[in-house]
């Protein structure tokens, strides 16, 4: 019981600290403001973990239901070799291959479609429609077609990432204004020149939006596809078997790895986006 009280006390303290931090008037001191903007979510995150630990221990929650974070940490430290093998199988092989192929083909098809307004009119609503469908359902079919190894998972990832990329790129290519297009025409710019110098840069925010959406979709696709059949390695395989054996701490370790991989993947793309679309208002205001 004391642990639970401690948890509540910790929560309230952290909340109070955060309230104080955000009400500090930083004025023109940008580095202080940046520090506060980093510290506040960090404190909140730490609070969640501490409260989780204390409540689970304090209320004697069975570890099958929810293991405390320290136990998950210990499990991660104890089984790095397995985790690394799973990570290699699922992320480095299936996710990356599928992501590159899916985004790449979506991009290329968008460029092809761009030359025909008729195809564009027909494909855009369909692509939007398909984005709303439970595409993950093709997983069992892909496993049948491409076998148990990572190729079938990559195929699922390709299908899942293709449509968001297609739709966003087509929309992005239409983002350049007629004024700018007219300017390119007065320069006698060819289709390729207009594409490379004007329309692709204008489409970059849309393309990066798709890349970010796809980064999470790809991981989900690969892991869920592994539930339908896989060699005895891989994150989805580990999750489903360890659940069966009630080794919940291993499952959580796998989830932690997946979460970390997903966040780093997403973060990397967001960083590249900042670097490439430095001119975009959302990036500029973010930096101020």
């Amino acid at each position: 019981m004391t642990l639970v009280v401690a948890a509540i006390a910790f929560w309230l303290t952290a909340w109070w600290v955060n309230q104080r931090l955000v009400s500090i008037d930083t004025g023109l001191n940008t580095s202080l403001r940046r520090l506060i903007n980093l510290a506040v979510p960090f404190i909140f995150g730490v609070t969640i973990f501490v409260v989780w630990e204390l409540v689970v221990r304090g209320l004697n929650v069975p570890t099958v239901l929810l293991p405390p974070p320290t136990m998950i940490g210990a499990r991660i430290a104890a089984s790095t070799a397995t985790l690394w093998a799973d990570f290699q199988q699922t992320f480095l092989k299936a996710v990356l291959a599928g992501y590159v192929l899916g985004c790449g083909s979506g991009f290329v098809v968008a460029l092809l479609v761009d030359r025909s307004p008729f195809l564009q009119k027909g494909l855009l609503p369909l692509g939007n429609f398909v984005s709303a469908l439970p595409i993950i359902g093709v997983a069992p079919i892909m496993v049948m077609w491409f076998g148990f190894d990572w190729q079938s998972k990559a195929a699922v990832v390709v299908i899942m990432t293709f449509f968001p990329m297609l739709v966003n790129t087509v929309q992005g290519l239409a983002a350049a204004s007629s004024m700018e297009l007219d300017l390119m025409r007065t320069y006698a710019g060819s289709w390729w020149q207009t594409l490379l110098k004007l329309r692709l840069p204008a489409a970059a925010p849309f393309i990066f939006n798709a890349l970010k959406i796809n980064s999470t979709l790809a991981l989900i696709g690969a892991i869920v596809a592994e539930f339908f059949g896989t060699p005895i390695v891989g994150m989805g395989f580990r999750i489903s078997t360890e659940v069966g054996r009630m080794n919940v701490d291993m499952v959580w370790a796998e989830i932690a790895v997946a979460a970390l991989a997903g966040s780093v993947f997403y973060g990397a793309i967001a960083l590249i986006e900042r670097f490439i679309t430095f001119w975009h208002p959302s990036v500029r205001s973010g930096r101020a």
């Binding site: 955060n18 955000v22 999470t216 892991i223 869920v224 989830i255 966040s263």
Partner: peptide
């Protein structure tokens, strides 16, 4: 300031997993 970044992070976790 504190919840929003975590809401976004929560979605990079492959929840379906």
């Amino acid at each position: 300031k504190s919840v929003m970044p975590w809401v976004i992070t929560s979605q990079t976790i492959p929840i379906l997993a």
